[in-house]
């Protein structure tokens, strides 16, 4: 595990446009943001000038370019509502890059990506990195309805094969993405050339994790948790793993499914 510099920076909004139902893409110019940022890492964004809301909010890096970064977010409460009101030129205080991102081994040849809902957020950055590494990509992407399936054309253009599902059947298969995933995920031989990357609701991740584990396939999942610091100092964001409670903000948010306790929600008490 290696840790790169973390910076608190004042970024400038250069774009904040709707891309779907209550969903926006925030583009920030931040020249002093460390260039070491990796796909799967996140930032802690201040979403008020004062104490209400007080704590910072966590967002995956949707993408990272020279001198700028992007966040794909859905308005679900006060902090994200504040974000949706930001206009070009406004300042946003953020800390990052934080946590451990996805691991792309040089031996990797084929990647299965699984996204549920806003779980698509970190994948643009990941797809760009996988493509640069010459990895073939197949994306299983599920959402409630067609309007919530984001950036499909862009991903296809990046050479990703798409398999879609919506709960209302408005696009792709009707049902959950895990069902579609299970249907296609037949006998795959465990190999260093093959890996699953997943991000989305916890139930989905744990199911994907169990399937992968059942066949001994390498699988990384990106988790969420309520966070106070995002830095690793408060111990507030932990998740149960084979090595005890670990910090989603520090040892995660990307964890190997092999190390998570997929059938238990917590560890034994002292």
């Amino acid at each position: 595990m290696s840790f790169f510099p973390i910076r608190q920076v004042t970024a400038r909004v250069t774009g904040n446009d709707p891309v779907g139902e209550a969903t926006f893409r925030l583009i920030l110019s931040a020249t002093d943001f460390p260039p070491t940022a990796a796909p799967g890492q996140f930032v802690m964004l201040r979403t008020s000038a004062g104490a209400d809301p007080m704590l910072r909010r966590a967002f995956s890096l949707h993408d990272r370019q020279e001198g700028s970064l992007e966040i794909l977010y859905k308005v679900v409460g006060r902090g994200t509502a504040w974000m949706a009101q930001r206009r070009t030129g406004d300042a946003i205080d953020l800390i990052g890059p934080l946590g451990q991102g996805f691991a792309i081994a040089p031996t990797l040849r084929t990647a299965l990506l699984v996204a549920g809902g806003m779980g698509i957020a970190p994948f643009r950055f990941l797809i760009r990195s996988l493509r640069a590494a010459g990895v073939d990509m197949l994306l299983f992407y599920g959402a409630r309805t067609e309007r919530d399936l984001l950036e499909l054309a862009e991903m296809e253009a990046a050479g990703v094969s798409l398999l879609l599902a919506t709960e209302d059947g408005s696009r792709g298969e009707r049902g959950r993405i895990t069902e579609l995933f299970q249907q296609h995920f037949r006998k795959v031989e465990p190999s260093e050339a093959f890996k699953i990357f997943a991000c989305g609701p916890h139930e989905m991740l744990y199911e994907v994790g169990r399937i992968a584990r059942g066949q001994a396939i390498a699988c990384e999942v990106s988790l969420e948790s309520h966070m106070a610091c995002g830095l690793g100092t408060c111990m507030g964001c932990v998740i149960a793993t084979e090595d005890g409670y670990q910090r989603v903000c520090r040892e995660g948010p990307v964890f190997s499914a092999q190390r998570l306790l997929l059938d238990e929600i917590s560890l034994a008490q002292d």
């Binding site: 809301p53 309520h226 408060c234 507030g236 005890g244 409670y245 917590s266």
Partner: peptide, 24 residues
């Protein structure tokens, strides 16, 4: 060493927060 309390351990409240880390 202490395991600490099971999650969720924190929650935001008006101008503050609650924590029950359990001294992990």
């Amino acid at each position: 060493p202490q395991t600490g309390n099971r999650p969720p351990r924190i929650c935001e409240t008006p101008a503050g927060m609650l924590n029950s880390i359990g001294l992990q």
